[in-house]
Nucleic acid binder design. Sequence first.
DNA 1: AGCATGACGTCGA
DNA 2: GTCGACGCCATGC
Length: 127
Amino acid sequence: MKKPLAPPPTPPTERNYFADVHEVVRLVPPGRVTSYGAIAHYLGAKHGSRAVGYALMAANLDAATLQRDAPVPAHRVVNRLGQLTGRHHFPTPTAMQERLEAEGVRVEDDVVVEFKKLYWDPAVELG
DNA sequence: AGCATGACGTCGA
DNA sequence: GTCGACGCCATGC
């Protein structure tokens, strides 16, 4: 039958790459953190780490994605130094830290305490 | 179509 | 050991 509405399987702003990033981030268990580079590396090491952050930013802002799939715990993603570089993109500058601390992750001076200890590498945990 | 930007990471000087 | 430049992928003008 003809389809009166044509729901695009993959919106232009959410391509396979973004979906991949979202999926991996969702796998990060509470109380653990990962890095942009780890995700990029897990996805093939060919993807730029910037694109990962870009995907998270888009995911957080795009309510459609949040409704379609589970919310992306972007607060569990920090840079390779454990710094909360993405906190400025949250509703409030402290929202990211608040969420992390709510999960038992201590944040001090915008840096995850015991980052190496809480580090969750998808390439290791998943593969 | 080309240039500039971005929640990064790695290399070279 | 610190600083600067390039690369990566995707988006916006």
